[in-house]
């Protein structure tokens, strides 16, 4: 067993445990913490794949910024344990078996047909300079479009989260 496989299995086990824990836990803050664990372990997987820049961005943006927002909102709204309702039972009856079948089918197809060619780890260093070249040269238009998207998202978040009374007071 090579070191890479051991590390892959280690990080993969953390990912799987975190993802399952997200489903099992009833309190949103526990789910958020297990999701953070999944993201940190995924950063480890990216490192194994030689994508160190993506790994760093994953930790900074996903685990360090987006999930902080989630935790912030959970704290702000003082979200409690969730309770069972009728709607969820229908979802369990039909949704879960469907998803499981789909997952098993996909897994079977992937294992069967893609063969098991090994990924040459570290063969693709993905240095930030090359990524920057791609991002600002070949993918310049999508990049600019996403910047507009982010701008719209900022304005939308401000408009949505502002208290209606506050704007009325300002208008007066």
């Amino acid at each position: 067993m090579s070191l890479h496989l051991i590390l892959f299995l280690l990080f993969g086990a953390i990912c799987v445990a975190g993802a399952v824990n997200l489903l099992v836990q009833r309190h949103p803050i526990n789910s958020a913490l297990s999701l953070i664990a999944v993201m940190a372990a995924l950063a480890g997987e990216y490192l194994l794949l030689g994508a160190e820049f993506v790994a760093a961005i994953q930790v900074i943006v996903y685990a360090g910024a987006i999930m902080v927002l989630f935790v912030f909102v959970i704290m702000l709204l003082n979200a409690g344990e969730e309770e069972e309702t009728k709607g969820s039972r229908v979802a369990i009856l039909f949704g879960v078996p469907g998803v499981l079948t789909g997952a098993v089918l996909t897994g079977w197809v992937v294992l069967r047909h893609s063969g098991t060619e090994p990924v040459p780890i570290g063969a693709l260093p993905g240095p930030p300079t090359e990524i920057a070249h791609l991002l600002f040269h070949d993918f310049l238009l999508p990049f600019e479009v996403t910047s507009v998207l982010v701008l719209i998202a900022i304005m939308g978040a401000v408009v949505l989260a502002t208290k209606p009374e506050a704007t009325e007071r300002k208008a007066r």
Binding site: I29, L33, F53, A56, I57, V59, I60, G64, F72, M75
Partner: peptide
């Protein structure tokens, strides 16, 4: 060779200690 990004990532995770302590 991504040392600076690593430091930024780790310090950005540090906020969880404070936030979770408060909650």
């Amino acid at each position: 060779n991504i040392g600076l990004l690593l430091i930024l990532g780790i310090t950005s995770m540090g906020v969880y200690g404070v936030a979770l302590a408060g909650w």
